[in-house]
Amino acid sequence: MTATIHATFVVERAYDASPERVFFALSDPDARRRWFMDAEGFTSITYEPDFRVGAREFFQFGVGPMNREMTNVHHIHDIIPNERIVLSYAMGWVGEPPFSASLATFELIPEGPGTRLRFTEQGAYLNDEADHALMREHGWKQILERLASEIAGHPQAA
């Protein structure tokens, strides 16, 4: 057995939209499905959002050409509308123990007419992959790009 690797990274991304608009994209079930589930290389299998403090959310994806099934379980720790979201999430292949358990924090900082999103991941990587935090950071950069497309491409529901 190898030791757990603990690592932290921060990714920041500026959006040309108000904190209210960014928070809507982060919390609305239809918007989340688009930027979180419908990514290239991933097939959405199960989408069970439940965006409330204390709630559990369950997501399942097929990954890569072989459609290997991966689960992602969220527990929501804290929500301050338009300001921040704190959650923990564990990811793993179906039928195996999770390979990571992380805290994920989204902070929305007003910046001129827009918003700076500061994403912080504090992860415990539970398998033998020293570069896991780097891969994860790359993954979140891509996700935050998709969030930009979501905000630009889908007017907020009234």
Binding site: T4, H6, V53, H75, H77, D78, V86, S88, A90, A101, S102, L103, T105, Q122, G123, A124, L126
Partner: peptide
């Protein structure tokens, strides 16, 4: 390995991931 949130009088004050 576990993750947890702590509250004080019902108010959130900390989240942690621990091994």
């Amino acid at each position: 390995a576990y993750a947890y949130r702590m509250t004080r009088d019902g108010e959130f004050f900390a989240s942690s991931v621990t091994s």
